[in-house]
Amino acid sequence: MAMIDIHVKILRYQPGKDDKPGWQDFAISVEDEATILDVLNEIHWRHDGTLAYRRSCRSSICGSCAMKVNGRNVLACETPIHRFGSKLKIEPLSGFEIIKDLVVDLEPFFAKLKRIKPYLIVDKPLPDKEFVQTQEQLEQIGESTLCILCAACSAACPSSWPNQEYLGPAALLKAYRFVFDSRDDGADQRLEIVNDKNGVWRCHTIFNCMEACPKKIKITEYLSRLKVKVVENSL
């Protein structure tokens, strides 16, 4: 463990003060094992208290700290600086309105989630104990339940950038997660919702979401399965 000097550029924006976002440079010393979050904390705690960013768990499960570092969407807490070297360029997620500095407006993101009815819909009577679900049936949705709603996927999606109405990869992945759950009876309702030009059809299999996903979920593949399901259902 040693201290190293790094150069950090951060895209700053303070509402009411700045007309538009602008770069600010910081030259700081951190441990060579530091993460991006450690860098931000160091700046915020010792250099400039006005810097704003989101963070909470520090263990890649809460999804607060997704941001763009040297052009890539990452979780700041789990990303060591050595992945990028001694020059860092940190900016907020693309495709969202900036509230302040690295903090973006996620209200539309969560509103889209709500739209696809993200809850189990059950028509049959509930069993006394658990539903029986085989390991194979669970396997269908297993990986999709890993999603931490960090929004890195939507921020990486070229279809999402120009079009605020597109549901986006995270909400669609959630739709997949319920449509393919063996216990769910609400597939028709959800497929109806995603069967829209601003639903699953705006996904052009660009694969950016998959590349950006910190949980390495095969989002594009699941969205493709969702498309097939919609077609099967509507023909």
Binding site: E192, N195, D196, K197, N198, G199, V230, V231, S234
Partner: peptide, 8 residues
């Protein structure tokens, strides 16, 4: 908008 059922 409500679903347009377009696209499929």
């Amino acid at each position: 908008k409500q679903t347009s059922r377009t696209g499929s």
